[in-house]
């Protein structure tokens, strides 16, 4: 679904931040992106959510070659990618509802459809009571759930999350990871950048490990897309089951 072949990235005339990055993400796969600060994680994520073009190498997104893609075709492609930031990047003057509705408004969806979808999704992330609250009045975990709802409302094929658990407590961190696993189960490809080794170990997904701009791929310790066993294993850990989400809020 997404392939990077010998991708290199540098800003201006600076040193190369990413070197010869090659990997592919299959539909419905779940990957962690790890590496120390300055390893190039954010740059790689920016390439993944089409904020930059690479300095060299080939990138294919949903069978489209980025080298030949016209600028006017980018928005349509970006709508297939959801992004969650560590600092949420919500619009402070808009309510949680309006923030989540933005991608649908951009897509030109009908108002009635937007209302029902947004309400359903905010309910899924357990924020139906905080629908009209502005980000300034939300807690870190609530903001992150609004950001996740905004990222997934268009039912993206790829969800990229940059340190989504970086600004929340461990309990909320587990809740958020559970949301990602739920999304992954319905076929969304997930890439989560994190520093949290414990989290990575507990999920057991394959790892894209960046070090000094070079990529090493580490296979997962268990198959997330496997049915019952692996999921039940996750649920028997201290991660919440979907039905527990409301109770835990």
């Amino acid at each position: 679904m997404i392939t990077f072949e010998n991708v290199g990235m540098r800003y201006g005339m600076g040193a190369e931040i990413l070197r010869d990055i090659s990997f592919s993400l299959d539909k419905g796969s779940f990957h962690f992106l790890t590496g120390p600060s300055g390893a190039g994680k954010t740059t790689l994520l920016k390439l993944m959510y089409l904020a930059h073009r690479p300095s060299r190498g080939l990138m294919h997104f949903f069978n489209k070659d980025m080298a030949t893609l016209e600028r006017r075709d980018l928005p349509r492609l970006r709508r297939r990618i959801g992004v969650v930031f560590q600092d949420f990047r919500l619009f402070d003057h808009l309510s949680a509802f309006d923030n989540v509705a933005l991608p649908l408004l951009i897509k030109g969806a009908k108002k009635s459809d937007i209302a029902s979808h947004v309400e359903e999704l905010l309910s899924w992330v357990d924020l139906e009571e905080r629908m009209h609250a502005r980000p300034a009045t939300l807690s870190g975990g609530e903001k992150q759930r609004v950001a996740i709802a905004r990222a997934v409302i268009n039912k993206p094929d790829l969800l990229v999350a940059d340190e989504p658990t970086g600004n929340v407590d461990p309990s909320m961190s587990r809740k958020l990871m559970h949301l990602f696993i739920e999304l992954n189960k319905i076929g969304t490809t997930i890439v989560v950048a994190t520093h949290d080794d414990e989290l990575v170990k507990s999920i057991g997904a394959p790892i894209l490990k960046l070090s000094k701009g070079e990529l090493e791929q580490v296979p997962g310790s268990r198959e997330l897309t496997d049915p019952a066993p692996s999921r039940s294993e996750i649920y028997t850990s201290d991660l919440p089951k979907p039905t527990d989400m409301k109770a835990m809020s």
């Binding site: 959510y49 904020a51 006017r72 928005p75 970006r78 709508r79 951009i106 268009n154």
Partner: peptide, 16 residues
């Protein structure tokens, strides 16, 4: 600038 980047990231065309 940041709001524009977010809008682009959400798939907004320049016209919007």
């Amino acid at each position: 600038k940041e709001s524009i980047e977010i809008m682009h990231m959400l798939g907004a065309e320049d016209d919007i």
